[in-house]
Design a protein around this nucleic acid. Structure first.
Lengths: 217, 217
DNA sequence: ATATATTTTTAGGCAAATCTAAAAATAAAT
DNA sequence: ATTTATTTTTAGATTTGCCTAAAAATATAT
């Protein structure tokens, strides 16, 4: 598979997590940062190879084979992210672009050895699940902080938005994966929250709370 | 720089270590496994970018800029090889192809962090020198085993041929980097040697001895 | 239900990297 | 020094992945 084919599969995979029907040509174009016509071309090629199911004008979906391929790319991406953070001291907002390149390195032995070296992690530095060698994904029951009940103790387990901007904000506020979080007051006017993060009281906007995943404890 | 451009630079670099004049079009074609006409095309492109010096029919050589680029690719290749062997338990005959892909990953931060993680190694698993971040290469005074004097104690510091075949042969004979080697007899008829490797007597053909680097002690 | 807007596809082209085959330059050999 | 052989370059095609612009299909709105 080419670099480009892999990127398309990955994009379709990510989009299909939110869209149960076929994934739109335009949505793919936006994610890949290309044009709808290019997407149509590539989709035809992927359909030829039996990696996607494609009906003209009806969007695409991954075949079983395509899904597995996509998961393997995601697996590689996230394992490399763990490597960068745990072993090479990258911060969680720096890993994405490099992992975007590393995910295309093609060696099963490499990725499985890396997996073992890292201790078979199940989540990446942003709390996203890492598919295992068979493509199985352990899903965690997490919820958005904005959906958490008052006075319910929880711990931070992931982010929805993993943009560098947001991650740096969290660093500044000393919010990290594993931080304990509890809502002690909800402001109905702007839906902002007063929370305890590791015991420290702070104010958090709704936008932040809508991008932080927590697990109740 | 594209993947392909990097491969050409690397090929020219390796060939120019043996050939002090301009490197031949045909030699490059053979190394890259392509055709002379393709090489001519690419060379023109690299000359445009000031990475090589090129005169029609006279071969190519690297400019200062091209040389540094080439060394950085070699640096990446060899650092990844160390990583694969030291951290992921690859054997020395398995690393080349994967490193061939990894060497194109483009992140200075990554490679310098990796370098530090590995403890700033100066040689790769085959005994080849690793350029440092400035492109400096610490050269070791090594010689071929075939050039070693009788009864001169030495240690194995590298291989000239790093084909999987040869490396597996060395594994089988329990010859590795760091093994002590001493010639105790030279057979003039076929130039084969009787040697002590870590104290064990064994017979070694001239071809083997001409592909093993040693350092006298 | 028809007109309007949006999305998707087709048609035709472009740039990069490669190739084959022929021509030009250089090297080797008698 | 010519001829012969080899190497290198040019010319013209091909493939991949992308593009723009126009046409076709689908969705939306009055």
């Amino acid at each position: 598979m080419t670099y480009s084919e892999e990127n398309y599969l990955k994009a379709i995979y990510h989009l299909s997590l939110f869209q149960k029907k076929g994934v739109n040509t335009n949505a793919i174009a936006k994610m890949i940062d290309s044009k709808a016509s290019s997407v149509t071309d590539m989709i035809k090629k992927l359909a030829e190879k039996n990696l996607v199911e494609y009906q003209k004008y009806q969007g695409v979906s991954l075949t079983a084979e395509g899904l597995l391929e996509a998961k393997m790319i995601v697996r590689k991406h996230r394992l490399w992210e763990v490597f960068l953070v745990e072993k090479l001291d990258f911060s969680w907002d720096e890993v994405h672009d490099v992992a975007e390149e590393l995910e295309h390195i093609n060696s099963e032995k490499l990725i499985n050895k890396l997996d073992a070296f890292l201790g078979f992690p199940t989540e990446d530095p942003h709390g996203d699940p890492i598919p295992n060698a068979k493509g199985e994904i352990k899903k965690m029951d997490k919820k958005l902080l904005s959906e958490l009940k008052l006075n319910q103790k929880s711990i931070c387990v992931g982010v929805k938005d993993s943009s560098s901007n947001f991650l740096k904000y969290l660093d500044k506020q000393q919010i990290a994966l594993g931080s304990t979080i509890e809502i002690i007051e909800k402001e109905s006017f702007d839906a902002s929250l007063i929370v305890l993060v590791n015991g420290n009281e702070m104010n958090i906007s709704n936008k932040i709370a809508s991008n932080l995943y927590v697990k109740t404890v």
